[in-house]
Design a protein around this nucleic acid. Sequence first.
RNA 1: GCAGCAGUAGCUCAGUUGGUUAGAGCACUAGUUUGUGGAACUAGGGGUCGGUGGUUCGAAUCCACCCUGCUGUACCA
Length: 444
Amino acid sequence: MKKDKKNKPSKDLPLGFVDRQEKELLVRDFIISNIKEVMIKYGFQYLETPSFEYSDSIGKFLPDKDRPDEGVFSFKDENKWLSLRYDLTAPLARYVAKNYLEIPKPFKRYQLGTVWRNEKPGPGRFREFLQFDADFVGTKSLQADAELCVMISEILEKCGLLKSEYIIKISSRQITEELFKKINLENNDQRLITLRALDKIDRLGWTGVKQLLGKGRKDQSGDFTKGANLSLNNIEIIEKELNKKLPATEDLKEILKIFNDYNFLNFKFDPSIIRGLEYYTGPIFEVNLTGEIKNGKGQVIQFGSIGGGGRYDNLVNNFGNYEAPATGISIGLDRLVYALMQKKDFKIKQSRPVVICVFEKNSMKDYIKLLTTIRDAGISAEIYPGENKLKKQMEYANKINAPAVILYGEDEIKSGKPTLRDLSTGKEKSIAIQEIVNEIKKII
RNA sequence: GCAGCAGUAGCUCAGUUGGUUAGAGCACUAGUUUGUGGAACUAGGGGUCGGUGGUUCGAAUCCACCCUGCUGUACCA
């Protein structure tokens, strides 16, 4: 036995992959059903694309020059490279380019799907996770961008979040573009470092960000991050510009007006939102939870946003000659699940079966008859799946959190009166079969 | 990727300046109770002390490297 141990397959999971148990899955299902409801209400259509795409389709055509073909899981199939998708937006762009002539313009679709990222996992971040995306393709109207925010907030509230527990931050790429012009920043490396630094205001504050805009910053662990090397003067201009409370760009002014028409208030203008590097072209938004998120040990962790999105007017065009300005939003379901499960008042119902204990194997017919009666009433029930002493059967029922057990032995079968035991109180009652469904309903 | 911390039973951890056969609680198994779970008591199973190599008469303990995890940081389409 022990000798074999070395050759046994590993029970460990690959880095960043996790098993998910019922409790979590039920919360996820609950969120998904809310999403679907809202999506239908807002007039989006459902789409599914495959997990794999040609690597070209999801990598090469992205206008993000800073990113080489890394971070994806790939393999070579018949001389062509395939990759697991890393988001749902690139496949959407590919889908639209492929079906452009048939689809309605604009095209509104939503999609739920697993995506994979070959990178270091963090708290609440895995290498395989479920994403939800909703996009408008083929419209420049900012009505679309605004409606995405309204819609996402409806979903969150349907899931049980209060207005005070989340906020949608909005900004626009135009702001940083104008800022760069103002300080005459043309060097692409410096621009990238600046954008990344600005993205961290909420975490590091202006003190940290200013270090990153200048020479660099040392973090808690002593690790050093190189800065953008901007002049003090320019850093001050940036701080001043970005501290303006009101959005100055045309696109944001219009979105604010639309928000107002919708009577949508739960947003905040935040010019520090960057989201990705060269992907977005206009308004951008981010969905943030306002409360503290704790890990298993009770430590508060940096959770980041649970999703976001924005306008990407050039993505579809990369696949061909179709002009398809687009805007979309995506939510990481796992993070939302994680956050919801931490809410004290959030409970999801796990329905457990009533367990019928078996005494007389020869009377299986009677057991099944009783079982069927209960199940036909829409109540979850099972005959104890095994052959064990009553004690074992009770322990099993207790372990699975069954609401009740039914004891149905020789005498009970004869008299037609099973014994019903409420497992939370321990009280037992002898009940006629015709009455058993009603009695169970009182317990569950 | 970089940095800090950690890795002892299924889980949470103890293990003194290196020293016989590595411990506890919870969980598990069996019994006290042959038709009764959640409590108690009794007994039991379970560990190449993350891995490899080194120092030593002797390593869970010291050293090196690797792996894994946590936290921060970087990247994040």
